[in-house]
Nucleic acid binder design. Structure first.
Lengths: 223, 223
DNA sequence: CGTTTATCTAGAACAAGTTTCACTAACGCA
DNA sequence: TGCGTTAGTGAAACTTGTTCTAGATAAACG
């Protein structure tokens, strides 16, 4: 009768934005091997369905079936569809982060580096527009009950951007503000693209535009 | 048997961003008086329910009951819950725009004027956080089928910002980019606030931060 | 006016997210 | 190894958005 939800719900890795390292592992409180495997199967099924038909195509019953797990079990691992998709996004972001670490941006200026990085991520999303749809829609639709998970995604994104700026260690408050604004723009621009209201070119422009903020907060004398 | 959906669906007021005036009336293709009244009752009920419990509290059956209309009729006027809420947002924005016209921002600098305007709007939303939740969640969750309506909201927002900048007439492409980025930040910051991941103060900072972009695109020599 | 046609109404029906329940399997530990 | 507890299964039930149907009203129009 102990309706204690499985890890993902209460995960709350308290760590500062700055000290984000490569190890942001799911960190669910000790899962057995079989459980870890189940969790992985679920995420995999979720991503697969999502890359077919986007948000709507991820149907909980089907995810359960496809991952060989009972519906109730699925809900024990991920207490809602949005939780599931946000976790899926965490997963994908992790990959992205690692990939980016291997091939850091080539540009000189921080602003250009960030823009380049985001455009790379954007191109990756373009390859799986449905998956992108599912993840981003879930992310912005998430209510308070998903805050911890959304926050994790946000921290990952922040880490990626800071990495691109070349200062994963000691960002100033001003720089953090700029990064937050960049993130806002990133998410919202993706949405306008996904809903067909903005072209790829326009998203590019928006990203480049917002990245100029970085210059404003550069360590240089610039106000 | 002519399942022609009512106006709101196919509304497609083609008008340029710049020439946005006060007359953006719903403009549904000729509704009779009774129909206009019904539409209004529906929107009113929607807003009332939303200001109670936010997105989830707006239940289509209840909206129908509260506005004295059959469920089928509700769906004829607004083909989905998201359509309904986006229309509700249009409605509210209209009011906001008029209010802002009456008392334009007092600041001198364009950037400060925009920031002041958005903070005013933000304070208005803070008075009805649940309503804000319903509208903003609907807006960002909207899929392609709602694009025209979302676009209308976007144009209204753009108009408000351009007004605040003091150039509703001839914005440069660069300025339009900045405005788009400001809008992105505005929506996304609202979401982080609504989901409890950012404080009011933080939203304020983000708005002020992004508004600096306006200086970068000023008619002045600034690059 | 009377008729034709488009709207509305009431209510059932359907779909997918979520919850619940009774039961079985796996795990942790003494 | 045996046993109590936690996790997982299967299936039904429940909720709320959405669709459908048949019949009643209102509008348009000759």
């Amino acid at each position: 009768m102990h309706d204690v939800r499985l890890s993902p719900t209460r995960r709350r890795n308290t760590f500062e934005v700055g000290q984000m390292t490569a190890e942001v592992k799911p960190a669910a409180l000790q899962l057995t091997e079989r459980q870890e495997a189940r969790r992985r199967r679920i995420l995999h099924a979720s991503a697969r369905l999502a890359s077919r038909g986007g948000f709507d195509a991820v149907q909980m019953r089907e995810v359960a079936e496809n991952s060989g797990v009972a519906l109730g079990t699925l809900y024990r691992y991920f207490p809602s569809k949005v939780h599931l998709l946000v976790a899926t996004m965490q997963d994908q972001l992790q990959h992205m982060h690692e990939t980016l670490r291997k091939r850091p941006p080539t540009e000189e200026e921080p602003a250009a580096r960030v823009a380049q990085t985001l455009m790379r991520a954007f191109r990756a999303l373009q390859r799986e527009p449905h998956l992108a749809d599912a993840m981003v829609r879930a992310l912005t639709f998430a209510d308070r009950s998903v805050s911890p998970e959304v926050d994790t995604v946000s921290r990952l994104t922040t880490a990626i951007i800071l990495d691109a700026m070349g200062l994963a260690e000691a960002p100033t408050p001003e720089q953090l503000s700029a990064v937050r604004v960049i993130e806002h723009t990133w998410h919202s621009a993706l949405i306008t693209w996904l809903s067909g209201r903005a072209s790829i070119a326009q998203v590019k422009i928006d990203i480049e535009t917002v990245c100029r903020l970085i210059d404003l907060t550069a360590p240089a004398p610039g106000r």
